[in-house]
Structures are given as C-alpha cells and as structure tokens.
Computed example of a mutant assay.
Amino acid sequence: MQKIRLGIVGVGKIVRDQHLPSIAGNGDFELVATASRHGTVDGIPAYQTIEAMLEAHPELDAVSLCMPPQFRYLAAHAALEAGKHVFLEKPPGATISEVEDLKRMAAAKGVSLFASWHSRYAAAVEQAKQFLKASPVRSMKVTWKEDVRHWHPGQAWIWEPGGQGVFDPGINALSILTHITPAPLHLTSAELEFPENRAAPIAATLAFGSANGLEVAAEFDWRQTGKQSWDIEADTEAGHMRLADGGAKLFIDGTLTFEAPDREYPALYARFAEIIKAGVSDADIAPLIQVADAFMLGRRKIVDAFHD
C-alpha cells in the first residue's frame, strides 16, 4: 500500500522531540514537506506557509499541525479545503467553535480529523480505565504540577489569550480524566491564579461532579520545582488507585501493578493512520470543554508577577 504522504506545519521542539522520531518509525507515513517560519528538517523541502507547501505539493495526503493553538484554525481550514487529512496537536484549537467547525468541514470533505490527546496513550491509562470500570469509585484527585521555566522557557505565546497558561499541561490531565472516569464529569467550581503581568493562569484549583455523585478535585500549578507531579488518584471499593508519572505507571494500594516504556507519540501516529484507512475522524473535545468551563466559572485571583 502507498505510504501516507505527510506535511508538518510548525517545526519546533515538540516536532523534533516527538513527531519526527514517531513518523520515522511508522511505515505508514512518508514526510514530504514542512512549513514553518523558523524551523526546517534536513533533507525535506521547507516553506514559510502552509499555503505555499500545499501549492508546491498537491500530492500530500495529510498534514500535522504543530503550531500554537491560536494559529491552528486557519491552517487546518486550508488543509481541509485542499482535501487533506489533518492531525491537530493538543489542544486541538483555541476555542470550541473552531474545532466544531473543523469537524463539520472534515465530514463534508470526506477526510479524517484527529484531535491528538497524547496523554491518553500513556502506558498505563487503559489499565486504569479498566480498574475504575470494575469497581465503584468514591472520589478522585488530580495533581498536575510542573516547572514552566523548564518545559516552556521563553515561550510568550503560552501566556497570551488562547495559549491557556497552566491548562496547556493541565489539559493533559483532563484528557486522561475524561477518558477513564466511568461517568461524564462537569465542572462545579474553579479558582484561577493569574500573575499580575500575564493574560493566562499559572495555577488552578478545580472541582468536578457527576450525575452519580462522583466528586473530583484537581490542582494544577506551573510553579513546582524539583520532582514534577503528574498523578491521578481514585478511592474505590477495590482499593486506592494512583496513575502516576503522567499515566506511565499504575499503583494499586501502593503496589506498582503496571508500567511500560513511553510510546505516546508513536501510538498517536498509529491511530492517525488507522482512522485515515478507515475513513473516519477522531476529534473528541471533552478536555477542551472542561478548560472552557474553567474560564467560564472560574474566580480570578491575581498573584505575583511571573518572569522567565
């Protein structure tokens, strides 16, 4: 079968660290071209804009969009208009309405749209989902705390409207949470901490509920130094579950029951190829809805200025 001819838009750190190795290791894809204002890939034709790339390479079958979310909608629209399958880095857009429009457009064009929630593909996530499915859940707690200076040094876009601030990593937790919980969750309250010199929050305290009485508390913080915390815990009738290290490890009553090497981005590209071949889309926006609800319901608290 002919390989899926792929173009990448936005050649930055995440592309070099994750996308390029994953594409190279997947026999379904062939990287044909890139579009980026600053980055290039050795040996691959490079263009400044997606429009120039699409014009020069009409043979492209699919496009991966890896620029900041504030700029993703118009690029996705151009790719879909040209009849290309589209891979959206997380979050899939700056707003819900953008992504809903892209979903409608993909359906009309008969191409696949993929909202790539990479943390859902962490090694132990499916095991955690099955554990929670088998035992009534009493309560859950999410702790997602990391050092923004380490993970996003000098990235101004992430502090601007649409950049989501601490929800950029926090949405990873929400992508797992909305996937593994047995019942749909809705936000009941939120407090968002905004540095006095930034337009996006640096921390958030969230509470969720469900129709069956499940309560979930979440703490997101971008000021943590030292060991980073990416944990989801659940008290159940079968014991205490902790999904640790961003979904890489599963503990039951303190005992490690499952872990495996990181394969998140290779799994994303395997899934992208799968939906292209099947002629379907996979564009769940539940995590993005939870973030939008947090901005809608959240009380704003102004805290000390943040400087890189």
Rank of each mutant, 00 (worst) to 15 (best):
T225I: 10
P169T: 13
P45R: 09
T255H: 13
F306N: 07
R198W: 11
G25S: 10
A24S: 10
A190F: 03
R299C: 09
H118D: 12
M67R: 06
A115P: 01
E237P: 00
I252W: 09
Q164E: 15
P182R: 05
G12H: 10
V63N: 01
Q2M: 10
A203T: 07
Y121E: 11
R223G: 09
K90P: 00
A207Y: 13
F131L: 10
L250W: 00
S189Y: 08
I8Y: 12
K90L: 06
I50R: 00
K301I: 15
D293G: 00
H38I: 09
K84G: 11
F194N: 06
K227N: 14
I44E: 04
S36N: 08
A294G: 02
A76L: 10
T181I: 06
A248D: 02
A204G: 04
L113N: 01
G43P: 01
A134G: 10
E89L: 00
D17M: 11
G10M: 08
A292K: 05
A107M: 05
A128S: 12
K277Y: 05
W117R: 10
G162F: 13
S135V: 06
G239H: 07
E100H: 08
L177T: 03
A260E: 07
F251V: 02
P58E: 13
G10E: 11
L174D: 11
V99I: 12
V41W: 08
K109S: 06
W159F: 15
P68V: 11
Q70S: 12
D308N: 13
A248K: 07
E264K: 14
V303M: 05
R120K: 14
P58V: 04
A122T: 03
H19G: 11
G213L: 08
A134L: 15
L80F: 14
A238Y: 13
Y73E: 12
D293T: 04
D293H: 09
A75M: 14
H57D: 03
L174N: 06
E126F: 02
Q48I: 13
P92K: 01
P92D: 13
G154S: 03
E98L: 03
